[in-house]
Each structure stands twice: as C-alpha cells, then as structure tokens.
Nucleic acid binder design. Sequence first.
DNA 1: CGGCAGACTTGGAAGAATTTTG
DNA 2: CAAAATTCTTCCAAGTCTGCCG
Length: 562
Amino acid sequence: MSTGRKRAASSSKEDRPGIKRAVKWTRQFSHAGPRFQPDYKPISGTKPLFRYAGKPLLLERNTEEVAVMYARYLCGKRRTRDIEKTLQQNFFEDWQKYMSSKEKQQIKKFELCDFSGLVKKLQEDKAKPLTKQERAAQKKKREDMMNQYKTVIVDGRRELISNFTVEPPGLYMGRGKNDNIGRVKPRIKPKDITINCDDRHIPKAPGNSKWGAIVHDKSVMWLASWYDPITKGPKYIQLHPSSKIKNDIEEEKFQTVRKLHRKILEVRKHYEKDLKSKKNETEGEYATRQIATAVYLIDNFALRVGNEKPEGATDTVGCCSLRVEHLSLLASKNIRLNFLGKDSIRYEKGHQVSNAVYDNLQDFTRDFDGKKKTKKQLLFDSIKTKHVNDYLYNLMKGQGLTAKVFRTFRATQHFEEKLEEYSKFHELKATKSTPEDDKMKMIVFKKANLAVAQLLNHQTLSKPTTKGKAIKVNEKRIKDAQYKLNNLSKGTDEHRKTTAQLVVLKHELDLKVEQRTYALGTSKTNYIDPQVSAKWCKKYKVDITKVYSKVQLGKFRWALRS
DNA sequence: CGGCAGACTTGGAAGAATTTTG
DNA sequence: CAAAATTCTTCCAAGTCTGCCG
C-alpha cells in the first residue's frame, strides 16, 4: 500500500517557534519495528464448539477466528445497549467475508448461530489455574519478547516505546451510537506498515515479509504507522511519555498555560469587547461576536472547542458544534447546557453568564437575517473552530494559544485554588505528621483532583458495584469507631487518636461517595500542572511518589527534578 | 480561504498488578 | 494465605489542531 507520506523536515519548520513543528530527531532513530500479533490458534479440536440451527458445525480456521472474536465479546461484561442490533449486523456482514463458500451457504442467519460452546471454552481456558513454574515461565517469555521491542534509540538516547505491538485483530468497539460497532478489524501485516527510522538502521521485517514502506522523516516522532481499515485513519507506534521529546512537549504545554495565566486579563478584556453587538452589524462583525461568545464559554466552562465531524459519525458535540437544542435560556441570566460530548459522555450543567453573553446566545437562536433557527441548527452557525483558533492566535501571537489551552489553564488553576482551600479547611500541618495527618493530606489532594474532574466533566458510565460495597465498609468502620469512642474517657491519648481516625473515616466516605461517578485519572495525567502538585507536596512534606504513579512520574520528570 | 489528511493529545474501559482484608 | 478491593497500566477510540493543496 502506498501511503503517500513523503514529507521531510524542511528548514522552514525548524525556523518556527515551538517544539511541535520542529525536527524531532536528527541522526539516529533506530528500533526493531513493531511486534506482530501471533497467528490464530484454533480452539476447537475435532469436536465442533460452534452450532448452527442447533447442529454442531466445524468452522474453518479463518471463520473460527472471527467467530471467536464475537465469543470474546460475549464473554465480557457488556452493558445492554441499544446499539446491540447494529453490532450483530455489522459483525455478521463482515464475518461472512471470512467464510468459505460452503460455509457461506450454510450460515445464513445470525439468529441461528450458537456461540455458547466457544464462550464456554474461552471461559474454561481463562479459569485454568497455572502452576507457579508455568506462571514464571510465561512471565519470562513475555519479558524476553518485550526487551526485544520495547526501546528505540533517539540520537544516542535509549527511550521506551509506549505501544510497540500492532493492534490485534478483533471487533471494532466504538463508544456511543457508533455505526462501525462490531465490524471486524483485520490482522495487520508487515506489508501494511510504514516504518520510520534513520537510514542506517532499518529494522528487518519478520520472516520473508516486506514492509509496506520505509521513510526517514525527522519531523515526526512515530516509529511505524498503518491505516486502520475501519476508520481509515492512521495509527502509530509512538514514544513513551517518559521520553525526552514527549517530556519537552509536555513542558512546553504548561509553559503556554502559564503564558495564558499571565495574560488572561488582557485576553478577557479583548473578547469581552467583541461580545458587544454593533449597530448595523456586518456579517463579519456578527461572526466575530460568535467567536467571542464561543471563547467566553470555553474560558468560563472549560468546554472543548467542538470540531466539525464527518457525516455519519457519532453525534457528539463541543462548543462550536452546539445546536439550538442543546441550550436552554433560563431566568436571571442562567443557561443550561445539555449535550453529548467526547466519548458520548453527557454534559448537563447550569451556568450563570454575563448579560452580553446571555443576549448573544439568545440572538444566536436566530440566524443573521433574524429568522428563527430550528432545534437542529448550529448555535454558532457563522464560524468554524479554525476561526476560533485563528482569533486566539492573534490574541497571543506566536505563543501557542489555542482553545484547548483554556481547558488546561482552568483545570490547573482550579486545582491550585482547591488545594489551597482544602489544605486550610482541614488545617494541614507542614511539619511532622501522624498517620491520620498523612491520610488527610491524601484526601485533600484527591478532593482537589476530584474538583478538577468535575469541572472537566470526566464522568464514568460504568459504576462497579465494588464501589458501593466499599462505601458500606467505610460506613461500618465509622460506626465501630463511634462506638469505641463512646466507651473511652475524654482526654486520653486513645480518645484523641480515635477522634482523629473518625474524622478521617468520615472524610474518606464523603470522598468515596462524591467520587463514585468521576474518573480522576485523565485530569491528573493530562490537565494538572505537576509543578503545582510538587510545590504542595514540598510544603506539606508529602512524598511525590504518593500522589503520582510510576508512569506519571516518568511523564512529569521535567517538572519534578528538584 | 476551505477542506482534508496527518500527527499528536485526551479519554473511558478493560485488564494486570498490587494492596488490603478477613 | 486466598479472595476481594483498589490502584495502575494498557488499550485503542475519539478528540484537537496544523499544514498542505486546490
């Protein structure tokens, strides 16, 4: 497959400010290429596990491989979704492409397919306990394999690779109301791969196979790429977040945020001026007013910019793609936004807005000519996200201000404020700590983290029941502690200690309850400036490894070397 | 300009590893 | 010590934004 990718690093790129556009490597980019998925091993012997119309049917190897993909899907704990029908249809349509002509004649209706034998077999294999030796051997084999593929040398520096294996064949599992759900993602082969490496270290393709293409592009940081047959979009083998290049880019991201922080009053003054409508407004001025209003929403409520999506894609929106139906104008300059955002996560919040913004939003429920829009029409009908980013570019020329910077800025700022607020409220000590003090510090950190997750609307759809159980356990402990306390005389050490424990337990419970539907991970790894955490940790004598995991510590090396 | 392809970040869920509990 | 709970890592889908091209 010809990829058509041929861009080499040009000098003009090097001249531009910022790391993103710069050359990523110069002399050496040497790696083993991606690891491929092992070939499929049939799971049914001579006895068929699949049944059609009640009768056992032995599937050919390729046919079984795809059937097993569906069986694997059935094994997982899947939520009942209204998308189930589409999934089955897509799967069956694609599956038939893998069948022999004889099988295609036999297997005509999805409803008559019985995968339960395959499912049972998969579950049995999974449940099979391994001996200690088997487990160790398996681990060793895995490590040996990984050692062969997991690193790349970038200009003399050995770096980790984040995903060195090509994606396995399987069913495409999109989120929300996705039209491609259940389609069969075929196996990726060496001929599908474009390798990016330096010209003296070209990895060898496995066996007798050949790479699809080999490029030496210094302006990008991917090691290998291929096209996803379902989405038609490119997929990449990339560097690990702990790598120097990724670290540099991450540092630059938060530098941009700090620049915005310094200029925020100016920026706000500028767009507030553009919020005002003019007499005999031209179409251009009307568009500017839409841009300013969108920027207001992005700045104030940390919304995503909301790019246009291709026809037929899952119907999710961001700021610029909001439709009239997603907005309610309420009394006292209050508005309510209700829409499906990224990953089909619902955003449903009420906000108070300025007079100018309220008036504008009301205006934008009509088009430029004053004609009332339908519910399905765009609120910001005269602009594209490109215009918003062009506008922002001009507000902070050459300093990398784009819409998503506001989200990071607001997240970090919110975190800093909440950390301070909670630290004061819970009277954290900067000196030596009891175990209860240490626990309170972690609670404060997590509470601030949670506040950011709420701001960014990082909700989880899956609510593991375990979380409910955990809450019960916590409640019981509170009861126990309370009971214990009642039987202790005041003023004793034991009484003091139990009181402190009780306080911690109560706050832990509050946190657990509030945290139930929120995912804190994304805000911690992508939005909160690690320098803020580091400063707080230093102040309150908290070990930074208590708040960041190993991968996060690697990602934030740039901020944490003291 | 506007549209689109490409490259990179951000996102929730699944799965693996580790810690806690009984 | 095993099972359960929790935390961390991996996975890959779904965004953002840039640069190129007509």
